[in-house]
Write a protein that binds this DNA or RNA. Structure first.
Lengths: 249, 249
DNA sequence: CGGAATGTTGAACCGTTTCAAACGGAGTGG
DNA sequence: CCACTCCGTTTGAAACGGTTCAACATTCCG
């Protein structure tokens, strides 16, 4: 299970969950989100462990995706979540949630009460900072996705997504893998780019034929990273953001 | 000139710019961004008034847009900025900016030094909160745009954009206008949806033919708001977010 | 083993693009 | 005041990328 132990927010939760004083109040709890379950549904059957609607949920390990559905019933996946990202931060505020989150593989999730989260961000600026930074990165990714969906052709879209996915699941680029699990169906991929599953299939085959990616069961390998990056027009700029003052967590 | 004087951040700047103690140190300054100027370029010729790269810029009045350009030179507009939004908040952190901002009409912009902004957010949680909320709303809008670009046809995309634009330039829905200025060329509109200017033209004509919108010079009017909303599948949910604790600014 | 979900393939179709040409209005200089 | 240019809009015809539908193969999983 991929866990980004280097991520400041994940480290924070690690420490908080060990804190006996806090865990006795049951304000930070870890739980498991099985394969392909909606966070919304998970909250339901977790309500026995306390009011889950008053908690924010941080992804500790695994991968999840966020999607919306149009009036015609077409699904658009609007983002991929990797460890260190909050899945429902907007719950801190009043406002209907317009998108839902579903796990792509088995995930570990930490539930933090709104109260504790507010307290933490106000008392320790570095935590608020980390939250803010992660939000800025998500926004930056969202903008890149708009460019991907709106202005690139199918082949480039797929290649670009594969590059981003490879980069993001390798914890902060430290353990970068040329071979990784890609637990997404072609229909899910299609919903990421605004394409059809059928067309994703053909496009994928094209990339394989040209030797840019190789497919095995539940996984893909990238034999020539540079070649894929070039056909994708991929640049990892938009995926990273560091604090100027380098705070300690 | 449309100014959202109700926006908490705009109000804050109003007060700060009046504060003699602060303005003497020249840490908050208002300036004007002429028609169709890149914020980046504006910063250049403003550097005489201090180091503009160490400032964040808040939109006080007017409308601006943010765009990226693909490798093939195709432009994608990834967002519209209305009063109360920061244009370069990511500048607080290290990280190459992957998108640029350009004014759509004449804008007023407030420049706040990074130092003051950090100080404000740390000392007054309600301000940090407002910043955070505005970031969440931007993210929410970005996700809706992905759905728009990826999963709706041209007609619906245009209708949806017109609804959102109408809603956003009417300050927080208080002075909602059925007739408003639409200072965007069809090419800019096309770059918002990932379409061609030519196709936007045809699609626009279709909407006009069906009586859903009317066009005049530099402005459009919506004779039947409900009809447009329905063809757009528009719901303003994703545009608003209120703080649960209702802080005072 | 059986059924459901996912992947694969082909052919016809269609929404959008591309290219090219013409049109209109605004601004400018003679 | 006209001629000129520039920019955005408009229109048509052909081409194309991606969709749709339908059938079949394969894998997964109870």
């Amino acid at each position: 299970m991929n866990t980004d132990r280097f991520h400041p927010l994940v480290q924070l939760i690690d420490r908080l969950s060990l804190h006996s004083s806090l865990s006795s109040e049951d304000r930070v709890s870890l739980f498991e989100l099985p394969y392909s379950l909606k966070l919304f549904e998970a909250k339901r059957f977790l309500s026995s462990k306390g009011d889950a609607t008053d908690h924010c949920h941080l992804l500790i390990s695994g991968v999840a995706y966020r999607y919306s559905v149009s009036d015609e019933g077409l699904r658009q996946i609007v983002g991929i979540h990797t460890p260190g990202e909050f899945l429902d931060l907007q719950q801190l505020y009043v406002g209907t949630v317009e998108s839902d989150v579903r796990s792509l593989i088995r995930c570990e999730v930490a539930a933090i009460s709104h109260g504790l989260l507010r307290q933490l961000t106000e008392e320790r600026p570095s935590i608020g900072n980390a939250l803010f930074t992660s939000m800025l990165v998500e926004l930056s990714i969202a903008r890149e996705w708009m460019l991907n969906i709106g202005r690139r052709d199918a082949r480039t879209r797929l290649a670009h997504f594969l590059c981003e996915f490879a980069f993001r699941i390798s914890s902060r680029g430290l353990t970068f893998e040329k071979k990784y699990e890609m637990p997404m169906t072609q229909e899910q991929l299609a919903d990421c780019f605004g394409l059809t599953a059928v067309h994703v299939n053909r496009t994928f085959k094209g990339l394989v034929r040209d030797g840019l990616v190789e497919r095995s069961k539940n996984g893909i390998t990238i034999p020539n990273w540079e070649a894929l990056v070039q056909t994708a027009g991929f640049n990892d700029r938009y995926l990273t953001l560091r604090n100027r003052t380098s705070p300690q967590y």
